[in-house]
């Protein structure tokens, strides 16, 4: 049987293991809550993570479509990017899938044919990890951009519209050159 067919059969177990592993990156009290609470509105972190992992798993069952993978991993990384994680910790869970899959395959993982298939699978996981890292960086940039522009957007714009801000005028024409700008 093809590797992907085996994995799809074991999907529930694999995704559950993967989810547990991601959630165990949180302190014990938190991880208990993230696993237990099933209401997506009472537990957005747990439910977003679980939904995301399910979708990514499906993405990995064939040629990786970067757009789709990015769309599915974004919500998970977006959350981790504002939490207490280093970039490696925020994205590293992707790589853990390799070990989970091997554990699930047991002895079968050593079969030469399987190993070839696994290599190809690993390459897709690596690719996904890079996508996760890209998303992480994008989120961090967004946070800094929001931080940098928030006050300007709120106050300055209102004052500017009201004509209460006097800005340095555009470069003067030759005749009216200001010494200060030289």
């Amino acid at each position: 049987m093809k590797l992907e067919s085996v994995l799809v059969k074991k999907q529930t177990a694999i995704v559950k293991k993967w989810f547990d592993l991601v959630v165990d990156t949180y302190p014990a009290d938190t991880s208990r809550f993230l696993k237990r609470q099933k209401d997506p509105f009472a537990n957005p972190v747990g439910s977003t993570t679980l939904e995301g992992l399910k979708a990514i798993f499906t993405d990995l069952m064939g040629e990786l479509e970067p757009e789709s993978a990015m769309g599915h991993i974004d919500p998970i990384i977006r959350i981790r990017a504002v939490q207490n994680f280093t970039p490696g910790q925020a994205t590293g869970f992707v790589l853990s899938l390799k070990k989970i899959v091997r554990d699930q395959l047991g002895d079968d993982a050593g079969d030469p044919e399987r190993r070839k298939e696994l290599e190809a699978f690993d390459a897709r996981v690596d690719q996904l990890c890079l996508i996760a890292f890209d998303v992480f960086v994008k989120c961090r940039e967004k946070i800094f951009q929001i931080q940098a522009t928030e006050q300007r957007n709120r106050f300055f714009k209102a004052f500017e519209r009201a004509g209460l801000v006097s800005e340095i005028p555009e470069k003067e024409t030759d005749s009216g050159k200001s010494d200060l700008t030289q």
Binding site: L21, P27, G92, F93, L95, S96, K99
Partner: peptide, 24 residues
């Protein structure tokens, strides 16, 4: 890789009183 991950991913197991504060 998985060893690095499992190391860096494991949060402190101490009770709240003994988990030192980390102002971030």
């Amino acid at each position: 890789p998985e060893e690095i991950l499992s190391r860096s991913h494991t949060p402190p197991k101490t009770g709240w009183m003994d988990t030192p504060i980390n102002i971030r």
